[in-house]
Design a protein around this nucleic acid. Structure first.
Length: 292
DNA sequence: ACTTTGACCTGTGCGC
DNA sequence: TGCGCACAGGTCAAAG
């Protein structure tokens, strides 16, 4: 479910409750999510103060007072919620991890991790730069390391459809299916376009790549902004985190008209490397020399 | 080394 | 209404 903006929104929502809270007890309702929890998972966390929480790609990072980091990925369906009155909390299905916290201002808080599909996972690392999940991630799209020169560097000598390349977390860390579809639509690039056709012989980026980079940045920033405004109730009774339902320009809009001004195209849906791609059959130029 | 495919799970919504 | 099937916003590991 969550892509970079949803994870960023989660971090911002949790931060006021978790920063400087102490983990009193961790209860695992099952032995695994996507992977088994490591031995002594709960013990390693109990007694630690959460110094800071931050995001890397789609991972949440909880920095602890002993310099360990609790790393959490939400998979497709994971979410966190904060409960202020756990005594009266009705346990729901798929609540897999319960963190009992003490917070100076809010006193007793409970952080609950819910994940129906259990594609999420958690890991504790003493050295995040060498962590198996984090070490090979590519650039943050909202950092200034992300630019067309970087993409050229990454793309040259390889051949993938642009859609696949943008989903590759070792190239750009944090993009997911929705925002990739949206960004390609904005830049008018067909999702099947081979990346080598976006770079010329002299390693000069095609002008569509020059459009794509700012498109990605602005889409992510808009989504974070929208998420922030839907975040008011992080601790409400249902505790549900309420991922904002944007209206997207292409994602999920099969057979509907293209939203680009003066475009009479229709949104099509295709499958690429097992995932759905949505694109406008008119304004997202069909790659030359490619059977579609 | 690069690219593709399969696997991991449950819930939901659609057609019949 | 019930059933079966396709599909869902992710990523790792194994196979090509």
């Amino acid at each position: 479910m969550p892509e970079l903006p949803e994870v960023e929104t989660t971090i911002r929502g949790l931060a006021p409750f978790l920063q400087h809270a102490t983990i009193k007890e961790v209860i695992l309702k099952r032995k695994n999510l996507r992977f088994d929890f490591e031995k002594n998972f709960a013990k390693k966390l109990e007694g630690q103060e959460i110094i800071n929480i931050s995001r890397r790609a789609k991972y949440l990072l909880f920095s602890l007072s002993n310099n360990d980091t609790l790393i959490s990925h939400l998979g497709m369906s994971g979410s966190f919620k904060i409960i202020k009155d756990f005594a009266n909390h009705q346990a729901k299905k798929h609540e897999h991890v319960i963190f009992s916290l003490h917070h100076q201002e809010y006193k007793n808080l409970t952080l609950i991790y819910t994940d129906p599909r259990r594609f999420g996972f958690m890991d504790i690392s003493s050295d995040i730069s060498n962590n198996r999940f984090l070490a090979k991630l590519g650039v943050e799209p909202l950092s200034n390391h992300f630019n067309t020169a970087y993409l050229v560097e990454q793309f040259k000598g390889r051949n993938l459809p642009i859609k696949t390349a943008l989903l590759d977390q070792t190239i750009i860390a944090g993009l997911g299916n929705i925002y990739v579809c949206e960004a390609l639509w904005q830049a008018r690039i067909h999702p099947k376009t081979p990346i080598k056709s976006l770079i010329d012989k002299n390693n000069k980026p095609d002008e569509r790549l020059e459009i794509l980079v700012p498109a990605i940045i602005s889409i992510l920033n808009q989504a974070i902004k929208a998420g922030g405004s839907s975040l008011k109730d992080f601790t409400n009774a249902n505790g549900e985190q309420g991922y904002f339902q944007h209206s997207f320009d292409v994602y999920g809009r099969t057979n509907q008209p293209c939203n680009k001004e003066n475009c009479s195209g229709i949104i099509k849906k295709i499958t690429q490397s097992g995932r759905s791609s949505f694109y406008c059959d008119k304004c997202q130029n069909k790659p030359v020399d490619l059977e579609l």
